[in-house]
Simulated scan of single mutants.
Amino acid sequence: MSSPPPTGSISVLARFGLTRQQWGMATIAKLAPLLALLLLVVIGAIVSPSFLSVGNIRSLLLSSAILMILAVGQTFVISTGGIDLSVASIAQLTGITLGLLVVSGWSPEAAIPIALIVGVLAGALNGAIISKLKITDFIVTLGTFSAFSGLTLLLSDARPQVVSSSTLSTIATGGVGPVSYLLLIALAIAVIAYVVMFHTPFGTHVLAVGGNRKAAEALGLSFARVKIGVYAIAGLLAGVAGILLVARLGAAEPTAGSTYQLTSIAATVLGGVSLFGGKTSIVGPLLGAVVLTGVVNLLTITGVPVYYQPIAVGAVVVLAAYLRRYER
């Protein structure tokens, strides 16, 4: 239960037609990522003693690293009031690009930049179609999700491409002390994203377009440039995720990581990013990724059948979206 608002704020609540309950729900919504994490820790400690073991926590954070990266990319898109349903298929496409280049004789170090460029171009294509043809984000990215998935299967002949690389293997399994390289990469990306979002003109433009597109355009901001920019960032980070997924699996699987399509959105919404745009966070989606990964982890170690896991994740997302209405 949240504490009641100060007496001086009651007149403000009345002015906007808010009740104390609505004010309390708004407060809970703002703290949702942290509260969800604390609740997960408490339930995990009660249900399974091994949940809070050092080994399991390290495994959980390692498993959440790729989702963190995708959630950061999704954050830029959703902050403009859009949504990207194609991030998982872009990750698969970049992974297959890397795999095919390595199989054909390229070194992984030379193939990785090419794969990342593919991710950026795929994301920028989303933004260009949305802004130039004036089609809604949902429809465009739903279409490109199917197109990129089909292209991935076509290029790979629906077969995994084995990638043997000591560099990628070290990234996937190594670390600095107890902290894995994958997690360090995710955190470094989050720091860069935070600076871009909150300390650069581009970040200001992203929030302005998301908050009020007409007002932003009246001030001279280019909606098309912002849209292409955020989708290019999402594509780049999807490319990074695809490469790290290849590193973890030791091969480029054409269908690997398909669940990231929705969980990246789920982590972002749970993290406090408004689906209406204009309000964002970088730390929140990171916590959201940890919570969603932790829910699956807890269900797994307690022996809950795997088909219950999407139900649990879906329930968390619906609850987070419900809380967002009060925060708005």
Rank of each mutant, 00 (worst) to 15 (best):
A232H: 08
G55Y: 14
I28T: 14
L18C: 07
I43L: 07
G175M: 09
W106Q: 01
G284D: 05
G284H: 04
G127H: 02
M1W: 06
G278K: 00
A26R: 05
L292K: 02
V230S: 01
T268G: 08
A266E: 04
A289I: 00
I57Q: 15
A128E: 08
V118H: 03
P108E: 01
S107R: 02
A115C: 05
A115T: 05
S166W: 14
F223G: 12
L155E: 04
V163A: 03
L153E: 11
L221F: 13
V87N: 04
L100I: 12
S165H: 03
G175T: 02
L183E: 06
V291C: 03
G235K: 02
L67E: 13
Y307M: 12
A172T: 11
Y181N: 11
R325T: 10
I90R: 06
L37M: 12
H205P: 07
A91Y: 09
L154A: 10
I139E: 00
T167A: 13
A32E: 13
S180V: 09
I96H: 02
L121C: 06
N56F: 11
F198Y: 12
G242R: 03
V72S: 09
T27M: 13
P201R: 00
L292S: 01
S274Q: 07
L270K: 13
I66G: 00
T75K: 03
P113Y: 05
A124D: 03
F198A: 04
S50P: 06
S107K: 02
I301T: 02
Q92T: 04
L323N: 02
P310Y: 11
S48Y: 13
T7K: 12
T80G: 08
S79H: 04
Q92H: 07
L184G: 13
G105R: 01
V273C: 07
L286K: 03
P254E: 09
V179E: 05
A29H: 03
V209L: 09
Q309V: 11
P108N: 02
P201C: 00
R213Y: 08
N126S: 05
A91P: 13
V118Y: 05
Y326T: 04
I57T: 15
V103L: 06
I66W: 01
H199D: 10
A193E: 10
G272N: 10
S222F: 01
T136N: 15
T75W: 14
